[in-house]
């Protein structure tokens, strides 16, 4: 049986205005597995993701690589769980691309030479060699998205978490980004409305709505269930519809 990379048990969370965002959700992700978390707007997907690295703390248990997340091990958790945020403008806040990608490494206390080597390596792997001295705000959205990914990959986390990874990307950039993600052999958790990308990348799916887990199972089982998806403001991914027609 594969080791659990992530285990969430009876997690509930309410925002300061008392609105319940999560209501006793439970799920787990095995090492090396890709899980797609789907659901309509306001389902609690992003809220759930922010519990994985301790940015939010609700009632219930969150375990990362077997360790319960608590105040004392947040630095370790955040080095193991890398979150790519939905809007790259929220993730890129330094004067240059190099600084943004190096930010996490510096916080973890890496030495200067290792920081420079790792930053250059990850930028090269993502085809971003020429932009390291540029101001991120001057780059295209697609480039910013890749740099956001770089800021997390450079830390070599074991678990990669992505919040709406393909949002606002043009078709070409989306295709390119998904190819990159497909090539990353890590445990992946992806919260998204883009069900075609879930179909492409994820072996398992978790459907959420109004802070609750509605269904979870193999991707095909959930994504083919037209009635279930429509009840939750979603629809069968186009790729699956095309496959069915063939």
């Amino acid at each position: 049986m594969k080791k659990k990379a992530v285990r969430i048990q009876d997690l509930s969370f309410s925002y300061p205005d008392k609105s319940a965002a999560l209501d006793r959700i439970s799920f787990s992700v095995s090492s090396g597995e890709s899980l797609g978390i789907i659901g309509p707007n306001g389902a609690g997907k992003s809220t759930a993701l922010l519990h994985l690295n301790g940015v939010l703390k609700g009632k219930g248990e969150v375990r990362i690589l077997g360790e319960k997340v608590h105040k004392g091990n947040l630095k370790w958790v955040r080095s193991r769980v890398g979150i790519v945020f939905q809007d790259p403008n929220d993730q890129l806040f330094m004067p240059t691309v190099f600084d943004d990608v190096a930010f996490g490494l510096l916080n973890l206390g890496w030495e200067k030479e290792e920081v420079q080597n790792r930053v250059q390596r990850v930028l090269k792997n993502l085809g971003l060699e020429g932009v390291q001295d540029r101001n991120p705000s001057h780059l295209s959205f697609g480039e910013k998205k890749k740099i956001s990914l770089a800021t997390v990959l450079v830390l070599e986390p074991e678990i990669l978490v992505l919040d709406e990874p393909t949002a606002n990307l043009d078709p070409g950039s989306r295709r390119n980004f998904l190819e990159i993600l497909e090539g990353i052999p890590k445990t992946k958790i992806m919260a998204t409305h883009d069900l075609d990308s879930v179909w492409q990348l994820c072996s398992r799916v978790l459907l959420m709505n109004k802070g609750k887990v509605i269904a979870q199972g193999e991707s095909r089982e959930i994504l083919e269930d037209e009635k279930l998806l429509e009840q939750n403001n979603l629809e069968v991914p186009h790729r699956l519809l095309l496959e069915k027609k063939e």
Partner: peptide
């Protein structure tokens, strides 16, 4: 949101 992103990178 930016602060959450900063915390997420240690």
């Amino acid at each position: 949101r930016i602060y959450a992103a900063m915390l997420s990178r240690g």
